[in-house]
Design a protein around this nucleic acid. Structure first.
Lengths: 167, 167
DNA sequence: TTTTATCGTGTTACAATATAACACATCGAT
DNA sequence: ATCGATGTGTTATATTGTAACACGATAAAA
């Protein structure tokens, strides 16, 4: 789970040192690629960095726009999607299905299920610990007879900051 | 929660009387529309019926294909999407985000969160009770400071029937 | 050192999902 | 009878994602 958080909350504080997030994400990514003997190429690294440009999910085509900044040529969709597939595969990013968008993984060092809190006002997305849900999941497995392999949870609501704004 | 279930499981048995599902869904829909003073027009009813044609999520364009069966003209996408929006709004169907597809709601009589078990082999999708998860959600609200308004859970795995097949 | 195999990228075209905008029709309430 | 609200038809287009094939770099095998 991420450092660099608001003491009151697992949501990153609006004024937090975001460069630290980016740096630690990239360091973790390089480390993971070394371990798994995968190459973090220029494109892949740039995409990861852009995704970590905020704590808000970003779409593939927005990434293409961002990649185009200051470049002569735009990259084509397959380039971005290949990078995204690579990063997803390694667990360095997650896909937010309800938004068709991608966000950095807070803890890529081991596989885990995706539990996200998403602010419908500012789009902040915070990854949370699936732990507290696992007894209910176990019960559900029993009752349903399903063999559950993936858990994908998306909570929508208002983040602490946006609640203040709207008061 | 639906009747007509496998005794061992909340998943519908492959041989269950599916016409009963369709009929009770349509009856419930008519009732709900009367209550809420909304019109279940021909198009809307047909779409709902097609969605209830199985317990598998179905995409908007497949619905268009199904609507076209035995008709002279195909309807255009907006027609289907309007019907879908209407049915979603009333809670008669849910959207499965990870599949861009739609499925009938098992219990439209009151608003609730969406918890689905989805079989990655046969696409069976079963709606389950969010109840057992609510204490963990409450804890999460506290810790995160988020005001959670919507819960959208998609579990992927193998349904009991497909587990047998793959043994 | 050449050869070859693998992996990553470039490029073109296209598929699949979803919406905007505007015209028209229906139907109940004033 | 008219008006306003709601539902549908129609055309065009936006958004998200893939298929298929060519090219290039790199590194291991011959």
């Amino acid at each position: 789970m991420p450092s660099n958080l608001d003491a009151q909350s697992i949501a990153p504080h609006p004024d937090h040192d975001h460069q630290a997030c980016i740096d630690s994400a990239l360091t973790a990514a390089r480390e993971l690629c070394r371990e798994k003997q995968q190459k973090l190429t220029k494109t892949r690294e740039k995409v990861l960095q852009l995704i970590w440009g905020s704590h808000r999910p970003i779409g593939a085509y927005s990434l293409m726009d961002a990649l185009a900044e200051g470049e002569q040529k735009r990259v084509a969709p397959p380039t971005v999607y290949r990078a995204l597939d690579f990063l997803l595969e390694l667990g360095l990013i997650h896909r937010i299905n309800s938004l068709n968008a991608y966000i950095g993984c807070q803890d890529p060092s081991h596989e885990h299920h995706c539990y996200f809190l998403i602010c419908t006002s500012c789009n902040l997305a915070v990854e949370t610990d699936p732990g507290p849900f696992q007894s209910a999941v176990g019960q559900l497995k029993q009752e349903s007879g399903f063999e559950i392999r993936q858990q994908n949870m998306e909570f929508n609501g208002l983040c602490p900051h946006c609640q203040e704004q709207s008061e």
